[in-house]
Lab assay of single mutants.
Amino acid sequence: QVATSTVRILGMTCQSCVKSIEDRISNLKGIISMKVSLEQGSATVKYVPSVVCLQQVCHQIGDMGFEASIAE
């Protein structure tokens, strides 16, 4: 089973930030795809909930120095 959710990301300033986040999160087990939008300050994450949760994704992004939260 696959889920798609949006994560809000604060602190991104350039495409390099976007690429860094996409590269790191895409390597997590259970992540199918991730598309980060600098303009919208968010990311669309396609993932397998039984393998990885959005809290883990937000935590990983937080470790990179950005502020991440699950969009309502």
Rank of each mutant, 00 (worst) to 15 (best):
I21Q: 00
K35Y: 07
A3S: 13
K29A: 11
V45H: 03
K29N: 11
M34S: 02
S50M: 07
T44Y: 14
C58D: 03
S69A: 08
T4G: 03
E22N: 04
T13I: 10
G11V: 06
V45S: 01
D63A: 14
G62S: 15
R8P: 04
M34I: 15
S20L: 14
C14K: 01
E39D: 11
V2H: 09
V48H: 15
L28Q: 05
A43L: 07
G30D: 01
A3K: 11
E67Q: 12
K46R: 07
S69C: 09
S37G: 03
K19T: 11
S42M: 14
E72A: 10
C53K: 12
G65A: 03
Q56T: 13
D23Q: 13
K35A: 08
Q1D: 15
A71E: 12
G41K: 12
V51G: 02
S69L: 08
M12I: 05
M64E: 01
R24A: 10
S69R: 12
C58H: 06
V36D: 00
K19H: 09
T13V: 12
M12N: 00
M64I: 07
C58L: 15
V18S: 11
Q1C: 15
S5Q: 08
S26Y: 08
V7Y: 01
I70E: 06
Q56K: 11
C58E: 09
G62F: 12
K29F: 13
I32P: 00
C17G: 03
Y47T: 01
V18F: 04
Q56M: 14
S5D: 10
Q55K: 12
T6I: 13
S33R: 06
K19I: 10
F66P: 01
S50Q: 07
F66V: 02
G11P: 01
E22Q: 08
S20F: 06
T6G: 05
V2D: 06
Q1F: 06
Q55Y: 14
V51I: 13
V57L: 06
L54F: 04
T44C: 12
Q55S: 11
V18R: 05
L10S: 08
G65R: 02
I32M: 06
R24N: 08
L54E: 01
L54D: 00
V2Q: 07
E67R: 14
Q40S: 12
L10G: 09
S69Y: 14
G41M: 11
E22T: 09
C14N: 05
T6Q: 10
G65S: 03
K19M: 09
Q56C: 09
V52C: 04
I9D: 01
S42Y: 11
V52G: 02
E22C: 06
S26G: 13
R8C: 11
N27L: 14
V2C: 15
G11I: 07
A68T: 09
V36G: 01
E39P: 08
K46V: 15
E22V: 09
H59W: 15
A3C: 15
K29I: 11
Q55C: 14
S33F: 09
L10E: 08
V2Y: 14
C14D: 06
E72H: 14
S33G: 06
N27M: 15
E67C: 06
V51T: 05
H59C: 07
L38R: 05
A43V: 05
V48G: 02
Q60F: 14
I61D: 02
C17N: 06
S33C: 08
V7A: 01
Q60N: 09
T6N: 09
M12P: 00
F66K: 03
V36T: 02
L54P: 06
V48T: 08
K35P: 00
C53P: 08
G62P: 03
H59N: 14
V18E: 05
D63E: 14
E72D: 12
L54G: 01
I21Y: 02
Q60I: 15
S42G: 06
I31W: 04
Q15P: 09
H59M: 14
L10A: 10
S69D: 06
Q56E: 14
S50R: 06
L54K: 02
A68C: 15
S69P: 03
L38V: 03
L10Y: 14
S50G: 11
L38N: 00
M64L: 13
Y47H: 02
M64S: 01
E39S: 10
V52M: 07
V36H: 00
A3Q: 09
V48R: 11
L38C: 06
V36C: 08
N27K: 14
E72L: 10
L54H: 01
R24M: 08
S20A: 09
K19Y: 10
S37Y: 11
N27H: 12
C58G: 08
V7M: 14
I61H: 03
V57Y: 04
I32E: 01
Y47K: 00
A71I: 14
K19F: 09
V57G: 02
V51D: 07
Q15R: 10
A68N: 03
I9G: 00
Q40E: 11
C53V: 08
I31K: 00
S26H: 08
L38F: 11
A68G: 03
H59T: 14
Q1L: 05
E67P: 09
S37T: 07
K46W: 15
D23H: 13
M34N: 00
Q15V: 10
A71Y: 12
N27A: 13
L28Y: 05
A68M: 06
D63I: 13
A68Q: 03
K46P: 04
Q1G: 09
Q1P: 15
V18P: 11
D63C: 07
L28F: 06
S26V: 08
L38A: 02
V45Y: 04
A3E: 11
V45M: 05
E22D: 01
S16N: 11
L54A: 04
A43F: 05
K19V: 09
K46M: 15
S5N: 10
I61S: 02
Q15I: 10
A68I: 06
P49D: 04
I25A: 01
K46N: 09
Q60S: 11
S50P: 03
E39R: 09
Q56W: 15
M64R: 01
Q40K: 14
V18I: 05
G62K: 15
V48N: 15
S50K: 07
V52P: 00
S20P: 03
V52A: 04
V52S: 01
L10W: 15
T13L: 10
V52I: 14
C53G: 10
A71L: 14
A43S: 04
T13F: 15
D63K: 14
D23T: 11
G30A: 04
I21H: 01
Q55D: 09
Q55V: 11
S37P: 00
R8N: 09
G65I: 04
I25M: 07
L10P: 03
A71G: 09
D23A: 13
S26W: 06
S50V: 05
K35R: 11
N27Y: 07
S16R: 14
S33W: 11
L28V: 08
D23L: 13
Y47C: 04
V51H: 04
D63W: 10
E72C: 08
V51W: 06
D23S: 12
A68P: 05
H59Q: 15
T13G: 03
I21T: 01
K35C: 07
I70N: 05
E72V: 11
T6K: 10
S16C: 05
S69K: 09
Q15S: 10
G30W: 06
G41I: 05
R8K: 09
A71C: 11
G30M: 07
V48W: 14
S5K: 08
P49Q: 07
K35T: 09
A3I: 13
L10C: 07
Q40H: 14
S37N: 12
M12R: 01
L54C: 04
F66G: 02
Q55R: 12
S5T: 08
V51K: 07
I25K: 01
A43D: 04
Q15C: 05
I31E: 00
K35S: 09
R24P: 01
K46T: 15
N27P: 10
